[in-house]
Design a protein around this nucleic acid. Structure first.
Lengths: 170, 170
DNA sequence: AAACGCATGTAACATGTTACATGATTAG
DNA sequence: CTAATCATGTAACATGTTACATGCGTTT
């Protein structure tokens, strides 16, 4: 149930509409957690019914701005540090590497080079992002920087691995 | 539909029963792709109906050993290098880091230290695993080594990030 | 004979994706 | 006035999890 907590976390920073949250899922959040529009609106409905968020203001075009409730904050803090993370890892690209023995070494190399290319691009995008963001010195932004740094290190590691791995084939 | 392809990949190495495959998902595969017993048996049924695998031998206790068909091999090779990977990343732990501003710096530090501890353990487990495996020099094992190395580098990177990140807080 | 491991399957539920559907407001 | 963007929602389907159910074969 992490989508639920992603929403609570964002609303704990500031009130927002489903539409606002969707933008964040597509942008800043997209390296960490995904959500489709459909799923998001559904979850907002459930969260409201459960009393963890409430409509705080309505705007044009049926816009509903939600805010987190005290109950929601309690749930968020509980999840953040007390609930054991238990997602099973799923890495589709690495899964393919496992089975590259089923194609020719040339195709395998090509695939791993493609992985390296992706990592390089990701690395660049994150570096650009870092430069473009005006990091206020508020509390929340601090952790955004940590996540960004994680992404950069991850991309670098993946790129280096790809460079090493192509050399191992045959 | 990666579960499907994980199954095809394993059956392309050697025939196996659902039970055999489950063992692999729980062991070697667990760092890369997860599957529950329930899901696996369901998928085997679908794959058989679709003609991508077939029952190749039956054993005691209703054991059904499957083998991949030529059609299955075609599908596997197609997926391996021609289908664009499109899984959206989901990292529950990193999602929490994003929102650590909602708890005290002390609790945040504790959480990141816990992350580092996990990475260290994972690193050790993989190193032990590496030593314990008798790598035959067959084609398939080669790629298993690449995946293992990825895991080791990933764990090391996570550990180093954690060490760096705790120092950034406050 | 009991306990353990092998072996398969179903049902209910939760989560996530794709496609469809609708309409208001704002910018050019 | 027209296109883009804002804004919310539903339906059908695919994927994944937890719990339940059953029984055979082997080892102690």
């Amino acid at each position: 149930m992490s989508l639920r907590h992603a929403v609570l976390g964002m609303l704990d920073e500031a009130p927002a509409s489903g539409y606002d949250l969707l933008r964040r899922f597509e942008q800043a959040m997209s390296n960490v957690w995904a959500a489709t529009q459909s799923q998001l609106y559904g979850e907002l409905g459930k969260l409201e019914k459960a009393g963890l968020i409430r409509v705080h203001a309505e705007g044009p075009r049926g816009r509903k701005e939600y805010e987190i409730t005290e109950e929601g904050r309690v749930e968020l803090r509980h999840w953040l540090v007390e609930v054991k993370p238990n997602r099973s890892p799923r890495n589709e690209v690495l899964l393919r590497v496992y089975f590259l023995g089923s194609v020719s070494p040339d195709k395998a190399k090509e695939f791993i080079e493609y992985m390296g290319e992706n990592s390089r691009e990701r690395e660049e995008r994150l570096t650009e992002l870092e430069a473009s963001i005006d990091w206020g010195d508020d509390n929340a932004a601090q952790y955004g920087r940590l996540v960004l740094e994680w992404g950069k290190r991850f991309s670098a590691m993946s790129r280096e691995w790809s460079e090493w791995a192509v050399k191992q084939i045959d």
